[in-house]
Design a protein around this nucleic acid. Structure first.
Lengths: 250, 250
DNA sequence: TCACTAACCTAACGTAGGTTATGAATTATG
DNA sequence: CATAATTCATAACCTACGTTAGGTTAGTGA
């Protein structure tokens, strides 16, 4: 099994979109398969990210360990799935990955994948954008699954705060947020009434001051501590290795 | 504002990864900006997907309307964000998108983006894989947010069923699933006890027969109706337009 | 100025699902 | 084969959140 037996590539192949050259290239990427035992770990959160794997046999999953002791599983991987492209374009792993039962995986380096893009920094940038969005989505998923409304809303506000700060739209810890509580409730999967309740709680705790579309976070760090915010997924930089490659190209 | 003012591209630029040529190319992609009014819709779910946008001013969001009348918001977009790459590699929109307040957006065609990949079908395939994974994640998010445990588990099982069927691992509506109820609970964000309760309910309804790692869905279509399953995101084919482009290339 | 409306707050009450606990069935291990 | 460790089922009880409802505030327009 190689990349060519991957779910999407197989589709491409049957559509007649892959030339003989392409196929040869794909086969050339094949590395030695690795035999994995049940519950063996592929990688841990925040380790260096430098490869992805095709699952050949067995089931695997990616997950995040949470501060409250539980874990949130992001995805189960079945044979033919690619595991680890989520982190392509990041320096470190955003989630851990492990086998469920015993199986076989075929690893590929990000470098090989990168070279597929013909050293186009633009293509790499687009892909990085896509994976970053996915990372934000994962983060939201984690909060939907395992945290209370209080922590969810705190996390949501802190994320908005960080994103606005990055585009210089925060002044004196305050910002403009054109969202109704109903929109927020549709994003966080709770009732509008409970969003209101939760805002009141945050206000009483002195964490959030809000007046219609004007929001102030008197102590952003306190909010961040409350949700144990990990901002690595908001990172706007590509890994140093990418920069090297890109600069080296013509 | 053009693609170059996008969050990730700005990062690339400051890292010195973009050549003059790259920058010129990016600027060349710029189309005329569009002035949007508050709550104006950019596109609707299942319309043809052929472009993405850079948000220049204002806030936007992507969302899915649910059968129960509510909607789930997937993401809020702030100035400098790219909206619509989620659907790159799909034929149709997986979610709707609309403005929140008034603003300005700059549209770009997928075709232009596609040409960035140097017509490499491999790179396109990788990106398609990534976006497909994101789509699955979105789907899970929607179910976590707005549906009951009963519907969530039904949806989960049906998704596994479809994915296994695609790799020919389903026989007579039965399949092998090496997951404990605890793993499922960590994926769906509910307690193991409630997973058990919910399995019992599905069993009593005659929808799922399960014996440890052996699962049988006597009537998969009934399950699908229950969750109103939309399988477009499991689609393994790239849009026809991609195939044409790929075949036309050397 | 006074309607009219959208957004928000708070209270009262009901329920889906969390928690804890106990026992049975299955699988792993010496 | 005996025993330990998982995994699962079901029950009893409790809480976070949904639902319904009524009232307040802030805009908007005649």
């Amino acid at each position: 099994m190689s990349l060519i037996d991957t779910v999407v590539m197989r589709g491409l192949s049957t559509q007649g979109a892959l030339s003989q050259e392409d196929k040869a290239l794909l086969l050339g990427l094949e590395l030695s398969p690795r035999y994995m035992s049940a519950s063996e770990v592929l990688w841990q959160e925040s380790e260096d990210a430098d490869l992805f794997c095709v699952v050949k046999e067995g089931w695997a999953y990616s997950y995040r360990n949470l501060k409250n002791g539980s874990k949130q599983i992001l995805k189960f991987y079945l044979p033919g799935d690619i595991i680890g492209i989520r982190d392509f374009g990041f320096t470190r792993r955003l989630a851990s990955a492990a086998m469920i039962n015993k199986g076989v995986i075929c690893p590929f380096s990000y470098q090989q994948l990168f070279e597929l893009f013909g050293r186009s920094s633009l293509a790499a940038g687009i892909v990085a954008t896509a994976t970053r969005q996915q990372a934000q989505l994962s983060e939201r998923l984690i909060y939907l699954g395992k945290y209370s409304a209080h922590e969810q809303l705190a996390h949501f506000l802190y994320e908005i705060y960080l994103r606005l700060k990055r585009i210089k739209a925060v002044r004196d810890n305050s910002f403009f947020m054109p969202l109704t509580q109903e929109l927020i409730s549709d994003a966080l999967g709770m009732s509008p009434v409970h969003v209101s309740r939760t805002f009141s709680m945050l206000r009483d705790e002195g964490l959030v001051i809000r007046n219609r579309q004007h929001v102030k976070l008197p102590d952003p760090e306190a909010l961040a501590r409350l949700v144990e915010f990990n901002d690595s997924y908001i990172d706007e930089f590509l890994p140093p290795s990418f920069s090297e490659l890109l600069k080296a190209s013509p």
